[in-house]
Amino acid sequence: TTTITTTNEEDARRIATEWKNKGYTVHVEKRGTTFRIEVR
């Protein structure tokens, strides 16, 4: 599992989409101002 964190919502969406397009399972969680993107 790879975890990526960013405070930028646009980055979070872009990163999540990129990983999904590669065939990975992506889970995005917002904690306060931080977005945690888990890639499996």
Rank of each mutant, 00 (worst) to 15 (best):
16 A>L: 05
17 T>W: 12
9 E>V: 09
3 T>R: 06
8 N>V: 08
35 F>G: 01
34 T>F: 12
7 T>M: 10
31 R>T: 14
22 K>A: 10
19 W>E: 02
32 G>M: 04
15 I>R: 02
6 T>Q: 03
18 E>A: 10
26 V>G: 00
33 T>G: 13
13 R>N: 13
30 K>D: 05
23 G>T: 01
4 I>F: 15
27 H>M: 11
9 E>D: 05
10 E>T: 08
35 F>A: 01
23 G>W: 01
17 T>L: 14
5 T>G: 03
19 W>A: 04
15 I>S: 02
35 F>R: 01
6 T>Y: 04
17 T>Q: 14
12 A>C: 06
5 T>L: 13
20 K>Q: 13
6 T>M: 06
16 A>R: 03
12 A>G: 02
16 A>I: 11
29 E>L: 09
30 K>I: 10
12 A>R: 01
32 G>V: 03
33 T>N: 15
20 K>F: 11
5 T>M: 12
10 E>S: 09
38 E>R: 08
4 I>G: 01
10 E>I: 09
38 E>H: 14
22 K>S: 05
5 T>E: 13
36 R>V: 15
7 T>S: 11
27 H>A: 08
13 R>D: 10
28 V>F: 06
16 A>N: 02
6 T>H: 03
19 W>C: 02
17 T>E: 14
6 T>G: 02
32 G>Y: 04
20 K>I: 14
9 E>Y: 13
2 T>E: 07
15 I>V: 07
30 K>T: 06
15 I>N: 01
21 N>W: 05
4 I>K: 03
36 R>Q: 12
2 T>Y: 15
18 E>T: 07
16 A>Q: 05
19 W>G: 01
19 W>F: 10
15 I>D: 01
23 G>M: 02
10 E>A: 11
15 I>G: 00
16 A>W: 06
6 T>P: 01
23 G>Q: 02
6 T>E: 04
1 T>D: 07
2 T>Q: 12
1 T>M: 13
24 Y>E: 01
35 F>N: 01
36 R>E: 13
33 T>Q: 13
32 G>D: 07
14 R>N: 07
39 V>S: 02
35 F>K: 01
23 G>D: 02
22 K>L: 11
9 E>R: 08
40 R>N: 10
37 I>M: 02
11 D>R: 06
16 A>G: 04
18 E>N: 07
8 N>P: 01
21 N>K: 11
35 F>Q: 01
17 T>M: 13
3 T>G: 04
14 R>Q: 08
21 N>F: 07
22 K>Q: 08
16 A>M: 09
32 G>H: 04
36 R>N: 11
24 Y>L: 04
26 V>R: 00
13 R>F: 14
30 K>M: 10
15 I>T: 04
40 R>Q: 12
24 Y>W: 06
5 T>S: 08
38 E>M: 12
35 F>D: 01
27 H>F: 12
33 T>Y: 09
10 E>L: 09
14 R>I: 07
31 R>D: 15
26 V>N: 00
13 R>T: 11
11 D>M: 10
31 R>E: 14
31 R>K: 12
18 E>L: 12
4 I>N: 02
24 Y>H: 04
9 E>F: 11
30 K>L: 11
5 T>C: 07
10 E>D: 12
22 K>E: 04
5 T>R: 06
29 E>R: 08
3 T>M: 11
2 T>K: 12
20 K>R: 15
11 D>S: 07
22 K>N: 06
37 I>W: 00
5 T>V: 14
10 E>M: 10
36 R>I: 15
18 E>F: 15
37 I>S: 00
1 T>S: 11
34 T>K: 09
5 T>I: 15
17 T>N: 13
2 T>A: 10
20 K>G: 08
29 E>S: 12
39 V>A: 05
40 R>T: 15
24 Y>F: 11
3 T>C: 07
19 W>T: 01
33 T>E: 15
5 T>P: 02
25 T>E: 13
31 R>Y: 14
32 G>K: 04
28 V>H: 02
6 T>R: 03
38 E>Q: 10
36 R>T: 15
39 V>E: 00
16 A>K: 03
17 T>R: 11
15 I>M: 05
9 E>S: 07
35 F>I: 08
30 K>Y: 08
34 T>I: 14
12 A>F: 03
4 I>A: 03
1 T>A: 11
33 T>C: 08
26 V>I: 05
16 A>Y: 08
19 W>P: 00
40 R>P: 04
7 T>D: 15
5 T>H: 11
29 E>G: 05
28 V>T: 05
11 D>H: 09
4 I>E: 03
36 R>A: 11
40 R>M: 14
13 R>K: 12
37 I>D: 01
14 R>K: 10
38 E>N: 08
25 T>R: 10
25 T>P: 04
29 E>F: 13
17 T>V: 09
9 E>K: 08
7 T>H: 11
20 K>T: 12
28 V>N: 01
40 R>E: 10
21 N>I: 09
19 W>L: 09
37 I>E: 01
32 G>E: 06
14 R>S: 07
3 T>E: 07
20 K>P: 00
18 E>W: 14
4 I>D: 01
18 E>D: 09
16 A>V: 11
5 T>W: 15
4 I>P: 01
21 N>G: 07
21 N>M: 12
8 N>I: 07
34 T>R: 07
18 E>Y: 15
4 I>L: 09
15 I>W: 06
14 R>G: 04
22 K>C: 05
6 T>K: 03
31 R>I: 15
9 E>N: 04
15 I>K: 03
35 F>V: 04
6 T>S: 07
29 E>Q: 09
5 T>K: 06
27 H>E: 08
32 G>Q: 04
9 E>G: 07
22 K>R: 12
